[in-house]
Design a protein around this nucleic acid. Structure first.
Lengths: 232, 232, 232, 232
DNA sequence: GATGAATGAGTATTCATTCAT
DNA sequence: GATGAATGAATACTCATTCAT
């Protein structure tokens, strides 16, 4: 997700809007670094060393440090790209006619972005990367998410006690499930999205069918056996 | 939870079932190490160094390595201890008269165990520790959890498409929420348990009240700002 | 001191005496670099990176390397500039009527130049910059300093065993004191100049008063506590 | 100086007085590390890397870090050894019958310790190594040095305006001279000690002879040419 | 058996210097 | 000629694991 996303678009151009554009070769390397970082962080988490990111990008580690003050800044840059993507999703959801469908669709798309992106989850979970980005995220998201939730509550479709701040938690939970089954059943989170959707609606006579089948016991065991690099 | 649990029980014999019993002092050291590891891993995650575990246990690192082949084996051993604890919870739940209440109570207790136990979550999430332990877990759990789920489905209370393998995912999702709000609102996971419960029941006319209030926007921001040691 | 000095004078031609003059813009850049380097080296020592020097000068690092083979050569060039300045001081001292006063005044002015010029002290102390510059310095200085010392000895005012080569050492010692008390009492070196002056005169019945008060014990402790970036 | 000093004596035993003695092999390595560090720091200053210290000591870098929390602690440990040595010198000087001779002898011995010990000078000059050591030094030195100075003033031999805090500066200045001529004429500082001594006495009819000859001009040039590792 | 000492590969980051634009 | 991008060796420090005492 990170890997393609909106990466190529204008926002990722020249080091930001405030400085003059990078030289072509520099910009090319910057993009390579971002792409390499996105790839390895997505798959293996933020623990990957910058040396490895550099190797992956085919540049020297010094080049990484020329473009990004430190690891945090690199991570943050990717974070901002993702945040923008998530915000765009929210905006599109607000344009949907049915408020409930908007909420559902929004959650689905958001979880899709998070699913399998180990690094993005770590970013959200451990905000070891600085402050302003977090504020930025909140400022960007809060109103949009608030609107989506409130619209769905106003029609009486969403339960009255649903709060805006529940949404990040729901996304987080789904992404946890997604990460866990990353290699065995990357789509499994959709199952739990349905469960949560059913839990969020204000009343219910029928059951939303679970379109994604549960893991088979063997699959669960394989999932539990999966090897992930390291815990430090 | 980890700290006492059922640590003393059958599983804690030697370093497996196949070797002769340890001398008493050796066994005492083994227990000390497990207790110390449980404590620090619970609070600070699996990243804590074995030197520190040893210091905490009042033994040398060498002793740790004499009792456990490597860090992984120590972690696995604790994992099995937890599995036993969780299995005991399942057994008690099976004795409850109302199948639906049994399921709810079981999930609640399981999530309680996971909540705030950083290390256990990492164990579940990153099963870097291999081997027969996982099979053991499955063999221990599967029938119990299966029974709980099937009982609730048999009465028509739980939705028919709920699967046994959904339970670990639900527990995992709740523990993610718990960990995220660890310092701001450690109980928040109960809110999402309710949502999931409502999503799991087969039909619904009324809403289970959310007894735990949602995070205020400021709380959410504080949560996002929390700094966790490192991503490696 | 470095900053203005005699920077514009004869030495500042091209990159030596043997090549044709630089284009005007090149020469302007060269001067900018020298000025910037003088400024930062004076204040923060020779450890400042060339990137920073370049930024300070408003040019690219590449330009620095086009004008100076390496960092050493830049440092040497500044060294020569300083030597010229110090030589000018010596020349003016030689014009003073009283030989003893000339010596005293010369030392005072020399020490003033060194005091607080971190970089210049490092240049003197660690002549990592090789070459003909040192010979140049000797050729420039030796006769002037020799004349000053000999004049003072000829009148019997300076002790007979004072040597020309003592002068750089005395200057160095004073600059050490100056650097040490840089932030607490930058003028303290004058105290020790007086002591040395009294030690250099051939006989003495009265004591030259120490116009600069000694450090208070607290000041000394503060001085000892001062933290200087790094020892590499 | 560092190299032999009092290094072998009891104070350098087992990691301090407060912990149980190290195992023999550990103590042997600790001494090796200290010896290696003393040697390289003495000759090349505190900039030498710990990897190199370790290599010099014939141990892995991890071993250095096992014995000393960080570079600072290693440096401090050596510093404390030297401070003790310097304090012992002061104490012995106080036992000399002639107060003036005591002062002279004290300065001479102190300068002897500092001379040529690049690292020790850096320690005194840049207290980048923590705080308590500095306080320790002051508390250890101040009274002793104060007594030496005051005794010499009380007899009228030392000039009345000499202060206790002048002593560290004098020692520093001499050590600067010593360092500068380290390879060409390591004893040259004695010449300037004489000058300062003559400047410190309260009156003078005769001149203390300068027993150490001044540098020849060629020697001075060689000194200026000396190469010292690096300025960063 | 227990201890804790030793090891060294691994991590983030800096900076002199070279070279493509 | 000027620029600044790229490089990579170097530095302080950590920690899982092995091995001498």
């Amino acid at each position: 997700l990170w890997k393609d996303g909106m990466a190529g678009s204008k926002d990722s151009g020249p080091a930001g809007q405030n400085s003059r554009p990078l030289r072509q070769d520099a910009e090319r390397n910057r993009q390579r670094i971002l792409a390499a970082a996105a790839e390895v962080f997505t798959e293996r988490g933020l623990g990957v060393s910058l040396d490895e990111v550099a190797r992956h990008a085919g540049v020297g580690v010094g080049t990484v440090y020329r473009r990004f003050a430190d690891k945090e800044e690199l991570v943050e840059t990717l974070f901002v790209e993702r945040v923008n993507e998530l915000a765009a999703i929210a905006e599109r959801a607000l344009e949907m006619p049915d408020p409930w469908q908007a909420l559902v669709s929004f959650l689905e798309q958001w979880a899709t972005v998070l699913a399998g992106n180990v690094g993005l989850r770590q970013m959200l979970l451990f905000a070891t990367y600085a402050g302003d980005r977090v504020s930025y995220a909140r400022e960007t998201f809060a109103p949009l998410v608030g609107a989506i939730v409130n619209r769905a509550k106003a029609t009486g479709q969403a339960r009255a006690d649903l709060a805006t701040t529940d949404i990040p938690f729901i996304a987080l939970m789904l992404s946890s499930a997604a990460e866990y089954a990353q290699y065995s059943r990357p789509e499994i989170w959709r199952r739990y999205l349905t469960l949560l959707i059913d839990g969020m609606c204000s009343s219910r006579h029928t059951i939303t069918p679970l379109t994604v089948p549960a893991l088979l016991p063997e699959e669960l065991e394989a999932t539990m056996r999966q090897r992930i690099p390291r815990h430090r």
